[in-house]
Write a protein that binds this DNA or RNA. Structure first.
Lengths: 81, 81
DNA sequence: ATGCATTTGTCCGTATGTATG
DNA sequence: TCATACATACGGACAAATGCA
């Protein structure tokens, strides 16, 4: 899963933004290839040590940016292109 | 199936703990014999009037306690001994 | 070998209640 | 008062294992 990032819930950066940025970095560096599936949201929550709700906010951001595509019941995928 | 218990979703007791406790009671009283199969999880959900997710949490607890054993595709069974 | 029903497993979608700052 | 964050709870869709005809 790559390195466990430091998520600072006390700092100025919002937690869900930190999670979104970390995932975005992995996508942009190609660590997560286009078309590949991300770990389940609840797994991401456990990995980052944050709540499900927080991961939802993060993936919501990335969806808006067009970086990922989510399919109900299947998973979340790195967008093609 | 025994008596329909009161599940209080507004009280201080978590719903999945209430479900787990009720099932545990039935097992400990011998109403559910060792080796016997429990109703399907989704049936339990309907019986208790709770969500599948909640029954999953409850059975997860009972598995941790060693009270039940679950086999994918077959069912959930009262542990021997 | 194939298909089907049953049952558990996995996942996302949404809502609610509480706590914190 | 409000946004963030967390945990629980409910719902829906899809997938995998098992057993049997």
């Amino acid at each position: 899963m790559s390195e466990r990032p430091e998520i600072d819930s006390s700092g100025p950066q919002l937690v869900y933004v930190q999670v979104a940025d970390h995932l975005a970095g992995r996508i942009e560096r190609g660590e997560l290839a286009p078309g590949s599936r991300l770990p389940p949201e609840r797994e991401l929550a456990a990995f980052y040590g944050v709540a499900y709700d927080t991961v939802r906010r993060a993936t919501s951001l990335l969806r808006e940016r067009g970086l990922i595509v989510t399919v109900h019941g299947r998973g979340t995928f790195v967008a093609e292109r």
